[in-house]
Design a protein around this nucleic acid. Sequence first.
DNA 1: TACTTGCTTGACGCTTACGTTAACGTAATG
DNA 2: CATTACGTTAACGTAAGCGTCAAGCAAGTA
Lengths: 166, 166
Amino acid sequence: MKIDLINQESFSISELSATFNLTSRALRFYETKKLIEPTRVGSRRIYSKRDKARLALVVQGKNVGFSLDEIKEMLDLYDIRDGQETQMKISSIKFRAQIVKLVEQKAQIEMAIAELTKLCDQVDVVVSGQPSDMKITEILNGKKVTLNAKIDALNTKSQPAGAETH
Amino acid sequence: MKIDLINQESFSISELSATFNLTSRALRFYETKKLIEPTRVGSRRIYSKRDKARLALVVQGKNVGFSLDEIKEMLDLYDIRDGQETQMKISSIKFRAQIVKLVEQKAQIEMAIAELTKLCDQVDVVVSGQPSDMKITEILNGKKVTLNAKIDALNTKSQPAGAETH
DNA sequence: TACTTGCTTGACGCTTACGTTAACGTAATG
DNA sequence: CATTACGTTAACGTAAGCGTCAAGCAAGTA
């Protein structure tokens, strides 16, 4: 049973799931999506080095926001052209497109943060000394309040007592 | 059909959906979620000013990344306490929590962008022996239109001819 | 032998926010 | 009167990525 852990040629499902911090269920799911195709010994899955490498790419792809389908597309492309220049260029283009997508998302989030910050400030003004007849609808219409930005204070001040162990 | 469009007291489903750029389906869905509760004339929905105001809050909440359930929670709270100080403080806390969430998401996206940028550079080195004649920074500034054209071309190529008129 | 661990294949569940028919009713206009 | 526009309910579909049983087999250990 002694296996050379350094130069290991094949892996069980639990080994790989541990390595990449994925569940076995996830690996089986990726298999149904044909992202990886382990061989079998009996009914058990045996993952090769190649499977492991592909899995690493899957994880990386996920981390940069590609969907599993998109990842599959690129992996297939890579298989067909085997790392040739054309494939590289295609990947490069997809990467850049993804960057554009992410930049847009980022802008959206920044707008939301700005909006929420504004709301926070408005609420604060009301709570800290204005008459209670001022209704939130009026606030949202921006009729009564002027605003100041304090994002830094927000980041350190908040945290509503909910312990999330994640 | 002569209705005072300026001081309108009630609205049809299509009026409101047009106003907020939502589909009728969406409004009915919000109703099942009890975000709004229009009255009926026969089987037809009649939305009050209050419904309209609530809907405005729903839309705003969505824009800053709250789920419909979260929005409902806050709206209910607002109904119970009717815009009092306690409610304001609670909202304020939720807003700040949401800001924290968004800031985290933003950080994630920034990491992904950095990672992808790195990958792009690496690919470029392999392909051309130089780090990119189409520099990422230029992409982000939208300077190289030729690249955008390439990306568009790619998108139309990989999209199975689905024209979205929205 | 009994028990435990690890692995297997289904197969349904969950989340979020609606889209999409189907099949039909009603109101206003020409 | 017919057409057009707008309305209704009900219920299934979609995307993404697995989670969560259920039920069972095979190998190693006490």
